[in-house]
Design a protein around this nucleic acid. Structure first.
Lengths: 237, 237
DNA sequence: AGCTGTGAACCGTTTCACAGCC
DNA sequence: GGCTGTGAAACGGTTCACAGCT
């Protein structure tokens, strides 16, 4: 039985305890900043591949779609390496953001549910380039168990605990039907998983300290529909 | 050539113009409230199916995972039908939120890209129950064009403009490879689409008034990884 | 001259606390 | 007594504007 807990809160907001060590990782970034860093990183990679070496906050802001001040503020939190009068050194920034996001870790990820969605996720190219590896695929359907999908053999859902223990995965991706989601969450959390990305629409209960991010197609569409409806009403009045 | 424009901004924030008519739709809700309404609606449906007729803000807040005050504030913006001393009448609330989100419209949606992801989206059960219908599936691959997926025949990407005109879709879902995303966006926007849900990781440029919502697996995982990394560091210090 | 880094002002959202109604 | 609806306070995030470095 899962404890109470609601949505991902986390953020103990780091009390200022020990001395800041060397030129290492910065202190807690705001959630909004964290959510933008992957976007920055992606665009920096593209620029870097295109041979660009330096860029101003205005230039980068334009390509990532934020304001220059927002970008500067975000980067300043990383204690970043910009040069006044010049701009940011792309390679340096990339390294800094990559370090902050733990891109080098090769985090093992378990994907649960190997239907169309699970397959699509397993085939996602950016997986390894973004610092993750598919440690295991898990499904309940005997017809799927044992087959190899994108180079990984599908394990039996019954073995979930064993699989997580073996792979030491702490991140799980849920691509199961909604009805199965909560019970899978309970099992993975119990096995030490502390980060969950779910594609099931259900509200999930997890203990404190476990972070859940939810991607819900229906929710996204309904949000769009809300604004669509407002647009059409504007014409009426 | 797409105009400038960055992320979805929209929200003209409605100047208080005409008189408020009857007991109709409310004035602009905040984006954060809008994003929570679909979740409320979903849980209300479940409660309703379970035969519950009335619920307090505390009770509902618990199941949707927000604070009671947040819930009350959100619902108060809908001018909602709660009863002091009692709680909310579930059927009434459902109707009210459904109306606000335009659940009855049966919005036609075009899905572009019929790979594993596109198929998963097309097979999404909640599609019609949440007020949408798949107006068309579109792909570039000749091997896929003409096949029937979840009851809908796949059209040729070359016909995109015709398909949108015929179906009158104003919402498009992008499940294409990232490289194709911007060009598809330009075409659909040009054809009158004003809401886009994209699964491609690229930053999209759209004209003002077009709303883009992005779902990016890599981004989500990287956000989780950030917090994972912090957790493991905590042990160190 | 140019562009970053940042304190200060601003704005939107959440939380608090309680008045008002059933 | 119980629970909603809502002003007021608190919070967090974004934008502004400029000091400071190169």
């Amino acid at each position: 039985m899962p404890q109470t807990a609601r949505r991902a809160s986390s953020r103990p907001d780091s009390d200022v305890s020990g001395a800041v060590d060397d030129l290492q990782l910065t202190m807690g970034l705001s959630p909004t900043t964290v959510s933008r860093l992957p976007v920055y990183l992606r665009e920096l990679e593209l620029l870097s591949q295109a041979g660009v070496e330096t860029i101003s906050s205005t230039g980068l802001a334009e390509v990532v779609g934020v304001t220059p001040s927002q970008l500067r503020k975000d980067l300043s939190h990383l204690g970043s390496y910009g040069t006044r009068g010049v701009g940011y050194h792309i390679a340096g920034l990339q390294a800094q953001i990559g370090r902050e996001l733990g891109t080098a870790h090769g985090w093992p990820v378990v994907i649960i549910g190997v239907g169309n969605l699970g397959r699509a996720l397993a085939g996602y190219a950016g997986f390894s380039s973004r610092g993750f590896k598919i440690a295991a695929l898990v499904d309940r359907d005997p017809a799927v168990i044992g087959t190899v999908v994108h180079g990984v053999e599908v394990s039996d859902l019954a073995e979930l605990e064993v699989v997580i223990a073996r792979t030491k995965a702490t991140i799980a991706v849920l691509a199961t039907p909604p009805a199965a989601a909560q019970s899978v969450v309970d099992r993975v959390v119990n096995q030490g998983v502390t980060s969950i990305l779910t594609f099931a629409a259900t509200v999930l209960a997890v203990p404190d300290g476990v972070i859940v991010r939810k991607v819900d197609l229906g929710q996204e569409l309904q949000i769009l529909a809300y604004y669509e409806q407002r647009k059409s009403e504007e014409v009426v009045r």
